[in-house]
Amino acid sequence: MTKQRVITALILAPVMIVGIFFLPLKPFAFFIAAICSIGAWEWANIAGYKKNWSRILYAFFVFVCLYVSARFLRINPEWKIWFLAAGTLWWTVAFALVKRYPGGTDIWNARVIRAFLGLCVLIPMWVGFMHLKEEPHSSLLIIYVMLVVWGADTGAYFAGRKWGNSKLAPHVSPGKSWAGFWGGFATTIFLAAVTCVGLDLWLQPLTTEDVVKVFVITAATTVISVLGDLVESMMKRHRGIKDSSSLLPGHGGVMDRIDSMAAAVPVFAFMMMLLNWGLAV
Rank of each mutant, 00 (worst) to 15 (best):
Q4H: 12
Q4S: 13
A9N: 02
V15R: 09
V15C: 12
M16R: 01
I20F: 15
L23W: 09
F28E: 03
A34T: 10
I46M: 14
K51H: 14
N52C: 05
N52P: 05
F60W: 02
F63A: 15
V64W: 13
L66P: 14
A70R: 10
F72D: 07
N76I: 11
N76S: 13
P77V: 12
W79I: 08
K80D: 00
K80P: 00
L84E: 10
A85S: 13
T88F: 07
F95W: 15
V98W: 00
V98F: 03
G103Y: 00
A110H: 11
C120T: 14
L122E: 03
P124D: 05
W126A: 13
S138K: 03
L140V: 11
L141H: 12
I142F: 03
V145G: 07
G155H: 08
G164H: 12
P174A: 13
P174K: 11
K176D: 10
W178A: 03
W182Q: 04
T195E: 08
C196W: 04
V211W: 08
V216L: 14
I224P: 00
L227A: 10
D229R: 04
M234L: 15
K236P: 03
K242M: 05
H251P: 06
H251T: 07
G253D: 06
D256L: 07
I258C: 06
D259Q: 06
M261F: 15
F268L: 06
M271Q: 03
M272K: 10
N276P: 03
A280E: 05
